[in-house]
Amino acid sequence: MLVAAALAIFVSMSLMLVRAFAGPTTYDRLLSVNSFGSKTVLLIGVMGFANGRPDFLDIAIVYALINFVTTIGILKFFRYRTLEVSLSTRRRAVADASGERPDA
């Protein structure tokens, strides 16, 4: 049953990949990458139990963290065109100077 569940999660990851390839906007890609990441976390857990060695959940924790971090990183990439500014203010000057829509 666990193996079936793992395969089910795997299938749903594949569907997410299709969305990531297809787009159409960059935000769709980001969404699917993010969602792919959280499904990976679950897959690690289920795979660990299916293999009878469930003590590698640390890696799942790391995945959850990494997923969060890269989402923020990519987000800043789009909104601010720099990794450097603080998110408490919005730098209009920089965002507008690029003069382009990320989904263009």
Partner: peptide, 8 residues
């Protein structure tokens, strides 16, 4: 993460 959210 700190740098990303609160500024470098």
């Amino acid at each position: 993460v700190h740098a990303l959210v609160f500024g470098l």
